[in-house]
Computed example of a mutant assay.
Amino acid sequence: MPADPTALRLALADDIAAGNPALDPAWPDAVAAVPRELFVDNALFRHAGSEWTPVHQTETSDDEWLGMVYTDRTWVTQIDGRDAADVEGPVTGSPTSSATLPSLVVRTAQVADLQPGHRVLEVGTGTGYSTAVLCHRLGAKNVVSIEYDTGLAATAAAHLHAAGYTPTLAAGDGLRGCREHADYDAIIATCSVRYIPPHWFWQLTDGGSITTTICGWMQAAGLIRLVLDDEGTAHGRFTADNITYMLARPHERPPSPLFFKLDGDTTSACLDPELLQRWEARFVAQLAAPSAELMETNSGIILRDVATGSQAWTEPKGTGWTVHQHGPLRLWNQVEDALIQWHGSGAPDLAEFGMTATAESQTVWIGSPQGPHWQLPV
């Protein structure tokens, strides 16, 4: 008997509810109602090694295709602006759009504390799937969604029309919000940002909220909901989730030149660089060196500052580690000092981190605003 999409949606919704008992039942209900197969078109990418291989619906059976669609995972649909449907063989590059795994869509919505009647701006329409989930829960008249990529925006509009949802859609830079339809009770982003864009603050109602993932060029992120107070300052705490979305395109790092190790000053490292394999440690390192990227090698790690060209790289020496630093910034010192502060606070997970933010100044802290803290690169 051929696969039944309705049964697959119900099974996926049940699995998501079972995996997160605290989830408002209205969100799994939305997953059960929205036909995800209408939002992935007829092709997607599988990842293997450094390559992305397109999988076309015409090359699979209906059962296999629907089985992929209703697996709770993210399916990349675009690499460096090239849609999977337009690619015939393996390619390399970075994902620029995807059908986000449904459990993350509803987890983010749950963190945002969205309720019927809330007027919401979604930044990053993507395929339109998350937009449809919001429409089912909140009513299409309360959902505004903006997409940076005009081609994706048009495709998402077609998907939503086919599924019977009629939110307000716009194409443009979502980091500037969507002023023509403001104000919003909540802004929710399906992309990560390096800092909260000023326009988001200006388009919220009094007491409105922003839910997003704060990420950077070391690829560690924290999910947070910030609530605006009467004085225009937003406050919130991160969740413990180790999750991320793709960085908003204007917040992506610029193309990197070929890397060559430069010796510079040589010292001994106080901390084992392998500590940076832990998500929270990388998040702290990213706060301490916000314009640096992190690379891992067989013999250690490399930090390279995109803005100044400064670099630091480690190599094992005896039972410890040697670090080489070159350029105007001492990247390893910045990172190591921050990690020592984090360790001194008990090496907490992300749930112990919080944020205080205005349009002009944004600080991430551990424990309380008086604890160890770092400025985001606003």
Rank of each mutant, 00 (worst) to 15 (best):
R176N: 13
A22D: 15
A22G: 12
W202Y: 12
Q370K: 14
C191K: 05
H56S: 04
E280M: 04
E51N: 03
T166M: 01
T108K: 00
T211W: 03
E147N: 05
V76E: 03
R176W: 01
A156V: 07
I366A: 02
V120Q: 04
Q57S: 10
R194H: 04
L271E: 10
S98P: 11
L228M: 13
V87R: 11
G222I: 06
Y148Q: 12
M295Q: 14
L104G: 01
L228H: 07
I79E: 02
E180Y: 00
P54R: 05
E352V: 00
R282G: 15
D272M: 08
W200N: 06
E315S: 14
T308D: 12
E64I: 05
G371F: 09
L152H: 06
P90L: 07
T356M: 10
A158Q: 14
A85F: 11
Q325L: 00
R282W: 08
A163S: 14
A269W: 04
R253C: 02
T190D: 06
L376P: 12
R282A: 15
P348E: 01
T155E: 14
Q341R: 15
R304Q: 13
G208T: 07
K261I: 06
G139E: 06
G327Y: 08
G320I: 07
T166Y: 02
A186T: 02
P28C: 06
P250E: 10
D241A: 12
P254A: 13
P95T: 10
P95I: 06
R278L: 11
T356L: 06
V133A: 02
A281G: 07
L262D: 05
A248R: 01
Y245E: 09
T319S: 15
P5I: 12
D337I: 00
S291P: 01
V306F: 11
A220R: 15
G19R: 02
G207Q: 02
G151T: 14
V306E: 14
R282I: 12
D41W: 12
P2D: 07
T166F: 05
L134R: 12
V144C: 14
Y245L: 05
V120N: 05
R119A: 12
G346V: 06
P348D: 03
Y245S: 09
C135D: 09
T125L: 09
R282L: 13
H251K: 03
R137G: 03
P167R: 09
G344N: 12
K261F: 14
T92F: 00
L331D: 04
A43W: 11
D149C: 05
T233E: 14
D62E: 13
E296A: 15
V69D: 08
G124K: 07
I210S: 09
M1Y: 09
S61L: 09
D24A: 10
G354Y: 02
T190Y: 11
N333Q: 15
T358M: 04
V55W: 10
W200C: 09
G139I: 04
T155N: 13
D229W: 01
A347F: 00
C178P: 03
D173Q: 05
R9S: 11
R237N: 15
E122P: 04
H56W: 11
K141C: 01
H199L: 13
H181I: 01
E315A: 13
G232Q: 03
V87I: 15
Q57W: 10
D149A: 13
V76F: 03
Y70W: 11
D185Q: 10
L12F: 04
